[in-house]
Design a protein around this nucleic acid. Structure first.
Length: 492
RNA sequence: GGUGCCGUGCCCAAGUGGCCUAAGGGGAUGGUCUGCAAAACCGUUAUUCGCCGGUUCGAAUCCGGCCGGCACCUCCA
């Protein structure tokens, strides 16, 4: 068990403070997952990777972690804002869209995108949460919670649904600054709904017997509000009070603000004392949005033949509480760094096999570097420094690549294993098939050309050798003469 | 109206008042290797941290003011 202190920026107190757990060395952690109405985009995963890194750091400290990350498959509305839970359900809208035509019903659509999400998750090498609950699996608890809120005087029924009374919860607005009064002053137009006692009140249950996903409740047919699902699932798996809660910055309001209000109104206890919100990702200096045409799903990037770990590294290259401007350069830099890590790993493997005699010349240096990397992670998930340490270690391994003793190689391997556990940037998990970029190369032709060139080189006909090399280059094939023979790869 | 973030070399980016004459990556540029390349590896690359004041023995780091950029409270993590 490490005696290091794990410090994390908390958006509730707006300070960096130690992450304390109720039960020593056991972190109870809830992070908001996606609404599965489409493929996850790279911004979604930046936020998930923050959670992943927190979990990895906690485990590296020897903590036990119970991580719950939900999947929202009902109730997340297109205009789930302060004025009212308005708009339509995202799942329903998705079914009506062009992509939605592939599905027989909204349930199939949800399952398809949930599966795609888990697949992206694995490729990006995120650790698996202990529990991945779905909102639709917990509707009964949501109904019970709704009832309980009414009984306790925190919610009331109207002809359109059940609403949470913001006035009944004085702490409302503590997280986001959007107190009831501030909301009233908001510049945004407020949609008036005469059914609500107060325009700041938000929906806990929506009455709707036309909805594609509906359940029977004491309030008739309908479906649960978006916020109540997380209140209920966090409580079901982690108890009344949890240690840490995370999500994207847009979750802060209204989602998390409402979640706190509901949970604390239900239990009378503090819901969560430590909140982490990952800031948005910009693409080309602008907010990523479908309308601007700079919107990328994780799959879009993979389909270009980009190494998934490179995307992972690119997404974790900047602190979570700072916007990340995602560019081609970010991705290219990350890809280069992943190569460095992999080269060091390959060098260590080779040296392990060669089993050369000699002292361990790396052990001490690498142990220090790992310790510094872990320190960096404990200092508010400082990925930049942790990565720098990882690369420094990789460098010192690669530097001696061909001379590493068995003892050094063993130390090198240990370091790379530790770094991989902490940052997940050395080896991907089980090879998830990745779509190959459309190189469509004629391998036989290339090999014969290479052979031809090798013969020319042997005959010292370098002009011809160079000619063949240029010919291949024009085809997009790059050659490298290495001690182990000629290597080739598609030029990126 | 509310809530936050950021301005550090050509680019990305760390920096927890003194070990900062400021990590790390990219690029550029020398070199080793190579028939030449490529790749790899080894060097070099900010007396300076948006601007102006202040606190301090000492500030990129704290305080105040100014200038500039951005985000959330719409779709969206």
């Amino acid at each position: 068990m490490s005696d290091k202190v794990f410090r994390l920026y908390d958006s509730l107190s707006r300070t960096v403070k130690p992450l304390v757990t109720q039960e020593p060395n056991h972190l109870r952690f809830y992070s908001c997952g996606p609404t599965v109405y489409s493929y996850a985009h790279i911004g979604n995963f930046r936020s998930f990777i923050t959670s992943d890194l927190i979990v990895r750091t906690a485990r590296a400290l020897g903590w036990k972690v119970t991580w719950v990350s939900n999947i929202t498959d009902v109730g997340h509305l297109t205009q789930d804002d302060v004025a009212d839970a308005g708009g339509e359900d995202k799942m329903e809208r998705a079914l009506r869209s062009k992509e939605g035509e592939h599905f027989n019903n909204v349930w199939e659509l949800a399952e398809y995108y949930a599966e795609a999400y888990r697949n992206d998750w694995a490729r990006l090498n995120l650790t698996e949460p202990e529990i991945r609950p779905k909102a639709t699996q917990h509707v009964r608890e949501q109904i019970l919670a709704t009832n309980e809120l009414i009984e306790k005087g925190h919610a009331y029924e109207t002809p359109t649904g059940v609403y949470f009374s913001v006035e009944s919860f004085p702490n409302y607005g503590r997280l986001s600054g959007n107190t009831r009064d501030n909301l009233m002053d908001a510049v945004r137009d407020v949609v008036l709904d005469d059914n609500k006692r107060d325009q700041a009140d938000f929906a806990v249950w929506k009455k709707d017997d036309k909805h594609l996903m509906q359940w029977y409740s004491p309030f008739g047919w309908g479906f649960p509000g978006w916020h109540i699902e997380c209140s209920v699932m966090a409580r079901a798996y982690l108890g009344d009070t949890i240690d840490l809660h995370s999500g994207g910055e847009d979750n802060k309001f209204p989602h998390h603000e409402c979640e706190i209000a509901q949970s604390e109104a239900l239990t009378g206890k503090q819901f969560c004392d430590h909140w982490v919100h990952t800031r948005f990702l910009l693409v080309g200096g602008e907010k990523m949005s479908k309308s601007k045409g700079n919107f990328y799903t994780v799959r879009d990037i993979f389909e270009r033949g980009i190494e998934p770990l490179a995307l992972r590294l690119a997404l974790m290259s900047t602190h979570f509480n700072k916007e990340l401007n995602f560019t081609e350069q970010t991705l290219a830099d990350a890809a280069g760094n992943i190569q460095r890590m992999k080269r060091a790993d390959a060098a260590a493997d080779a040296a392990l096999e060669a089993a050369r005699l000699g002292p361990d010349e790396l052990g001490e240096t690498l142990a220090t570097l790992y310790d510094e990397a872990l320190d960096a992670m404990c200092h508010d998930i400082n990925t930049s420094v942790a990565l720098a340490k990882a690369l420094e270690g990789a460098k010192s391994i690669s530097r001696e690549a061909d001379k590493l003793s068995l003892a050094s190689a063993t130390s090198a391997k240990k370091f790379l294993d530790q770094i991989n556990d902490l940052l997940g940037i050395v080896r991907g998990v089980a090879e998830v098939p990745v779509p190959v970029a459309e190189t469509k190369v004629d391998e036989a032709l290339i090999l014969s050309k290479i052979e031809e060139r090798t013969a020319a080189k042997k005959a010292k006909d370098f002009a011809k050798a160079d000619e063949i090399r240029n010919e291949l280059l024009a085809m997009g094939i790059e050659l490298r003469d290495t001690p182990n023979g000629v290597e080739w790869s598609a030029k990126s």
